[in-house]
């Protein structure tokens, strides 16, 4: 399978279709994967593809606007391409998507890879990329789907319990903004959290300030989050950020029958409206 990726990547580089192929290589710990930007055929030989390849590489397309680039995408990552094309951030004809069908990736930390599926993989509904120019099959038994047990558990809690739950989560936040940096949907040149005048999110690190950050971060991704789960993966203090994103995704699907990133044409829910709707919910 990795041979298919390598030969396709070489072909794309040598015939000049793209200048760079973004894929995965083995990290120096010998166990986990890391992104590799290959500009030459020699570099392509370092490509790997297995269930430790956790990163969403399509996010790097934002750094290569206008430059012909090929990228290896899993099904969740592939939705990034549709999202960014829809939002006029990248040009579809400048991107060559090497799609990989995905049975799910595992929890991997420096020096060790477990058999445990990533939380985003047990809730995932896509097996084949939503968009690709060339398709490769990753072998492996598909992770069991569990639905959204955490989300359902939250719904059974009282408002008071939910408030306490989130306060415990938000008080751990160190506001490193890794969730934003890794997110393919967070590309504003100036983020509201970095603005000083007005200061939307105070510099003091306290649950109420952190809550403003997390609620608005999630809301800015409402109807846009492609559920790659990178925010939660990179969180150094383990805040279950995907709970907020999944809650909004479920509401968006229920209200507007829309899931982002499945195609590049449908307008997102906040860009359109119907004259007759939502009066009962109001």
């Amino acid at each position: 399978m990795v041979d298919e990726i390598r030969s396709k990547a070489k072909e794309l580089l040598t015939d000049g279709t793209v200048e760079c192929v973004i894929g995965y290589e083995r990290a120096t710990d010998g166990v986990t994967a890391r992104p590799l930007f290959a500009y030459t055929a020699e570099e392509i030989d370092r490509f790997i593809m297995d269930n430790t390849c956790v990163h969403n590489l399509a996010r790097y397309l934002l750094d290569r606007k206008g430059k012909p680039t090929a990228v290896v995408v899993k099904p969740c990552d592939s939705r990034t391409i549709n999202l960014l094309v829809q939002e006029n951030q990248i040009e579809r004809d400048k991107v060559f998507a090497i799609g990989v069908t995905c049975p799910g990736v595992v929890e991997a930390h420096w020096g060790e890879a477990s058999d445990e599926a990533q939380p985003r993989c047990v809730t995932c509904s896509l097996e084949v990329p939503a968009v690709y120019d060339y398709l490769v099959t990753m072998p492996g038994e598909r992770q069991t789907r569990t639905g959204f047990p955490d989300l359902e558990r939250m719904e059974t809690m009282s408002p008071e319990e939910r408030r306490e739950f989130w306060e415990r989560q938000f008080e751990r936040c160190i506001r490193c903004h890794a969730c934003r940096q890794v997110c393919p949907g967070c590309y504003c040149p100036i983020c509201f959290v970095d603005q000083l005048d007005p200061t939307w999110v105070g510099i003091r690190n306290a649950p109420p300030e952190n809550q403003v950050w997390h609620l608005i971060r999630a809301f800015h991704l409402a109807g846009r989050c492609i559920e790659c789960g990178e925010c939660q993966r990179v969180c150094p203090v383990g805040i279950p950020l995907m709970l907020l994103n999944q809650k909004l995704a479920a509401e968006v699907e229920g209200m507007f029958d829309f899931r982002p990133g499945l195609d590049a044409e449908t307008l997102p829910p906040f860009a359109v409206f119907k004259k007759e709707e939502l009066e009962a919910e109001r």
Binding site: G223, F270, K275
Partner: peptide, 29 residues
């Protein structure tokens, strides 16, 4: 609805707050 001075601002607001409300509820507000 239909009377917005800018024709459609309130329709966008309706969608936005229709979604913000469940999110607030989700974090205990």
């Amino acid at each position: 609805p239909g009377d917005c001075h800018y024709s459609e601002g309130n329709y966008y607001a309706r969608r936005r707050f229709g979604l913000l409300r469940p999110l607030l509820d989700f974090v205990g507000v």
